[in-house]
Simulated scan of single mutants.
Amino acid sequence: MSTTKSIFSPTLGRGPSDQGQVERQIALEYLAEAWNSAEEDGLEKAALAHAALFAALATFVNLHGDEATADLIAQLPDRIRTGEYNLDRVLQ
């Protein structure tokens, strides 16, 4: 697996502290590589984002059920507003 610059790159190399975080970081690197390949093939970022969200939500529903997934999604507006998903923010 090669490491390439992507929209996810700012999160790489932050020193994961537990095995679950290590696994999520590796998964993110795989997704970044696939994302880059799709962009190189001409797919639009918006289409990739929609497909990624659908795949993620369908997986969560399959693993945890409708209600738990809905509860998770209900927390997203506040997390988005506080910048948790802003890759340009500066952590202090």
Rank of each mutant, 00 (worst) to 15 (best):
E84I: 02
G20K: 14
A27L: 14
L63T: 08
A68E: 10
Q92P: 06
A68I: 03
T3C: 03
A32M: 02
A46Y: 13
V22L: 09
Q19Y: 08
T4C: 04
E40Y: 00
S17E: 15
G65A: 01
T82N: 04
N62W: 07
N36V: 13
L53D: 06
Q75Y: 08
L72K: 04
A56V: 12
D18F: 11
N62V: 10
A34Y: 07
R79D: 07
T11A: 14
P10K: 02
I73P: 05
S6G: 06
V22Y: 09
R14V: 08
A56Y: 15
S37W: 09
A70M: 11
Q19K: 10
A38E: 01
A68R: 08
L72S: 08
E33P: 00
I80S: 05
A68N: 09
E40F: 00
Y85R: 02
I26T: 15
Y30P: 00
D88W: 01
L72W: 06
A58H: 09
S37H: 13
S37G: 11
D88G: 05
S37D: 12
I80D: 05
A74E: 15
D41I: 01
A52W: 00
L63A: 14
Q21L: 10
D18C: 09
D18T: 06
Q21W: 03
D41N: 05
T82G: 03
L12S: 06
R89E: 06
D18E: 11
A49W: 14
E33F: 12
G13R: 04
Y85V: 04
R81K: 15
I73T: 12
F54N: 15
A34Q: 09
L63G: 04
Q92F: 08
V22P: 02
Q25V: 12
L91S: 04
